[in-house]
Protein backbone atom coordinates (compact mmCIF):
# COMPACT_ATOMS: atom_id res chain seq x y z
CA UNK A 1 0.00 0.00 0.00
CA UNK A 2 1.36 3.35 -0.94
CA UNK A 3 0.14 6.14 1.24
CA UNK A 4 0.70 8.94 -1.16
CA UNK A 5 -3.07 9.16 -1.04
CA UNK A 6 -2.71 12.60 -2.40
CA UNK A 7 -1.91 15.69 -0.47
CA UNK A 8 -5.15 16.58 1.18
CA UNK A 9 -5.28 19.80 -0.78
CA UNK A 10 -5.68 17.83 -3.96
CA UNK A 11 -9.31 17.22 -4.66
CA UNK A 12 -10.97 15.11 -7.26
CA UNK A 13 -13.02 18.08 -8.36
CA UNK A 14 -16.04 16.68 -10.13
CA UNK A 15 -18.67 19.00 -11.42
CA UNK A 16 -22.10 17.55 -11.10
CA UNK A 17 -24.06 18.60 -14.12
CA UNK A 18 -27.35 17.40 -12.67
CA UNK A 19 -27.43 19.73 -9.69
CA UNK A 20 -25.64 22.75 -11.10
CA UNK A 21 -23.87 22.96 -7.72
CA UNK A 22 -20.10 22.66 -7.60
CA UNK A 23 -19.66 19.32 -5.96
CA UNK A 24 -16.27 18.30 -4.72
CA UNK A 25 -14.84 15.11 -3.30
CA UNK A 26 -11.99 15.11 -0.83
CA UNK A 27 -10.07 12.13 0.49
CA UNK A 28 -8.27 12.18 3.84
CA UNK A 29 -6.83 9.79 6.33
CA UNK A 30 -8.40 10.45 9.70
CA UNK A 31 -5.77 11.26 12.33
CA UNK A 32 -8.12 10.68 15.26
CA UNK A 33 -6.67 7.29 16.15
CA UNK A 34 -4.38 4.57 14.77
CA UNK A 35 -7.23 3.09 12.70
CA UNK A 36 -6.53 5.75 10.10
CA UNK A 37 -9.92 5.49 8.44
CA UNK A 38 -9.92 6.64 4.84
CA UNK A 39 -12.48 9.39 4.68
CA UNK A 40 -14.43 10.53 1.68
CA UNK A 41 -15.92 13.97 2.13
CA UNK A 42 -18.33 15.39 -0.38
CA UNK A 43 -18.91 19.12 -0.21
CA UNK A 44 -21.57 21.01 -2.03
CA UNK A 45 -21.48 24.75 -2.00
CA UNK A 46 -25.08 25.79 -1.51
CA UNK A 47 -26.79 29.06 -2.36
CA UNK A 48 -26.92 30.07 1.28
CA UNK A 49 -23.14 30.02 1.38
CA UNK A 50 -22.36 27.31 3.92
CA UNK A 51 -20.99 24.19 2.26
CA UNK A 52 -22.91 21.19 3.58
CA UNK A 53 -20.75 18.12 3.51
CA UNK A 54 -21.22 14.39 3.83
CA UNK A 55 -18.50 12.26 5.35
CA UNK A 56 -18.18 8.56 4.72
CA UNK A 57 -15.56 5.93 5.53
CA UNK A 58 -15.31 7.05 9.14
CA UNK A 59 -15.76 4.50 11.90
CA UNK A 60 -16.70 7.06 14.52
CA UNK A 61 -17.82 10.64 15.16
CA UNK A 62 -14.28 12.01 15.47
CA UNK A 63 -13.69 11.12 11.85
CA UNK A 64 -16.84 12.86 10.78
CA UNK A 65 -15.81 16.10 12.46
CA UNK A 66 -12.25 15.89 11.24
CA UNK A 67 -13.36 15.18 7.68
CA UNK A 68 -15.75 18.11 7.63
CA UNK A 69 -13.14 20.50 9.02
CA UNK A 70 -10.45 19.31 6.67
CA UNK A 71 -12.74 19.74 3.69
CA UNK A 72 -14.14 23.12 4.60
CA UNK A 73 -11.59 24.91 6.77
CA UNK A 74 -8.35 23.01 7.35
CA UNK A 75 -6.09 24.75 9.88
CA UNK A 76 -2.63 24.06 11.30
CA UNK A 77 -0.37 25.50 13.94
CA UNK A 78 2.84 26.37 12.13
CA UNK A 79 6.18 26.19 13.92
CA UNK A 80 9.61 27.33 12.88
CA UNK A 81 12.77 28.89 14.24
CA UNK A 82 14.40 32.24 13.62
CA UNK A 83 17.87 33.63 14.23
CA UNK A 84 18.68 35.42 17.49
CA UNK A 85 21.26 38.15 17.88
CA UNK A 86 23.18 38.46 21.14
CA UNK A 87 21.45 35.54 22.81
CA UNK A 88 22.68 32.48 24.69
CA UNK A 89 21.19 30.39 21.88
CA UNK A 90 21.52 30.81 18.12
CA UNK A 91 17.91 30.09 17.23
CA UNK A 92 14.55 30.96 18.72
CA UNK A 93 11.68 28.52 18.27
CA UNK A 94 8.37 30.14 17.33
CA UNK A 95 4.79 29.20 16.47
CA UNK A 96 1.57 30.75 15.28
CA UNK A 97 -0.37 31.69 18.40
CA UNK A 98 -3.44 29.97 16.97
CA UNK A 99 -4.07 27.56 14.11
CA UNK A 100 -3.95 29.32 10.75
CA UNK A 101 -5.65 28.31 7.51
CA UNK A 102 -3.59 25.59 5.89
CA UNK A 103 -3.26 27.60 2.72
CA UNK A 104 -1.39 30.33 4.62
CA UNK A 105 1.45 28.13 5.86
CA UNK A 106 3.77 29.06 3.00
CA UNK A 107 3.06 32.75 3.38
CA UNK A 108 3.92 32.54 7.07
CA UNK A 109 7.09 30.58 6.32
CA UNK A 110 8.02 33.29 3.82
CA UNK A 111 7.36 36.03 6.37
CA UNK A 112 9.86 34.39 8.70
CA UNK A 113 12.63 33.80 6.20
CA UNK A 114 15.71 35.83 6.91
CA UNK A 115 14.18 37.26 10.06
CA UNK A 116 16.32 37.79 13.14
CA UNK A 117 15.41 39.02 16.60
CA UNK A 118 17.42 40.51 19.44
CA UNK A 119 17.88 38.81 22.79
CA UNK A 120 16.47 38.69 25.39
CA UNK A 121 13.23 36.99 24.37
CA UNK A 122 10.54 35.66 26.66
CA UNK A 123 8.25 32.78 25.91
CA UNK A 124 5.01 34.19 24.47
CA UNK A 125 6.64 37.37 23.10
CA UNK A 126 5.18 38.45 19.77
CA UNK A 127 7.75 38.04 17.01
CA UNK A 128 5.55 38.96 14.04
CA UNK A 129 2.21 40.67 14.46
CA UNK A 130 -0.61 39.57 12.18
CA UNK A 131 1.63 37.25 10.17
CA UNK A 132 0.82 37.16 6.46
CA UNK A 133 -2.48 38.95 7.19
CA UNK A 134 -3.89 35.92 8.94
CA UNK A 135 -4.85 37.94 11.98
CA UNK A 136 -2.65 35.56 13.97
CA UNK A 137 0.64 36.50 15.63
CA UNK A 138 3.82 34.49 15.59
CA UNK A 139 5.10 34.09 19.14
CA UNK A 140 8.23 32.80 20.88
CA UNK A 141 8.05 29.31 22.39
CA UNK A 142 11.08 29.60 24.64
CA UNK A 143 13.10 32.03 26.74
CA UNK A 144 16.42 33.27 25.45
CA UNK A 145 18.73 35.28 27.68
CA UNK A 146 21.43 37.70 26.58
CA UNK A 147 24.74 35.98 26.13
CA UNK A 148 26.85 34.31 23.53
CA UNK A 149 25.81 31.12 21.85
Amino acid sequence: METSLGSSTQTAGQEQTASQEPRREHRFICIGCPMGCELLVVTEVSEEGGPPSAVSGNACKIGERYGREEATNPTRVMTSSVRVLGGDMKMLSVKTARPIPKGKIWDCAEAMRGLSVNAPVKIGDIIIKNAASTGVDIIATRNIARGSA
Binding site: M1, T3, S4, T9
Partner: peptide, 24 residues
Protein backbone atom coordinates in the same frame (compact mmCIF):
# COMPACT_ATOMS: atom_id res chain seq x y z
CA UNK B 1 7.95 -2.38 6.85
CA UNK B 2 4.48 -2.56 5.27
CA UNK B 3 3.30 -0.01 7.87
CA UNK B 4 4.70 3.24 9.17
CA UNK B 5 6.45 3.45 12.51
CA UNK B 6 5.18 6.99 12.94
CA UNK B 7 1.97 8.48 14.26
CA UNK B 8 -0.96 8.82 11.82
CA UNK B 9 -1.12 12.47 12.58
CA UNK B 10 2.45 12.94 11.36
CA UNK B 11 1.78 11.04 8.13
CA UNK B 12 -1.18 13.31 7.44
CA UNK B 13 0.30 16.63 8.50
CA UNK B 14 3.98 16.16 7.60
CA UNK B 15 3.76 14.16 4.38
CA UNK B 16 0.29 14.38 2.86
CA UNK B 17 0.01 18.13 3.50
CA UNK B 18 3.13 18.65 1.40
CA UNK B 19 2.59 15.94 -1.16
CA UNK B 20 5.62 13.95 0.00
CA UNK B 21 5.25 10.28 -1.00
CA UNK B 22 5.55 7.52 1.59
CA UNK B 23 6.85 4.30 0.06
CA UNK B 24 6.02 1.39 2.33
Amino acid sequence: MPYSGGLKRNIAQCLNDYGIPLKL
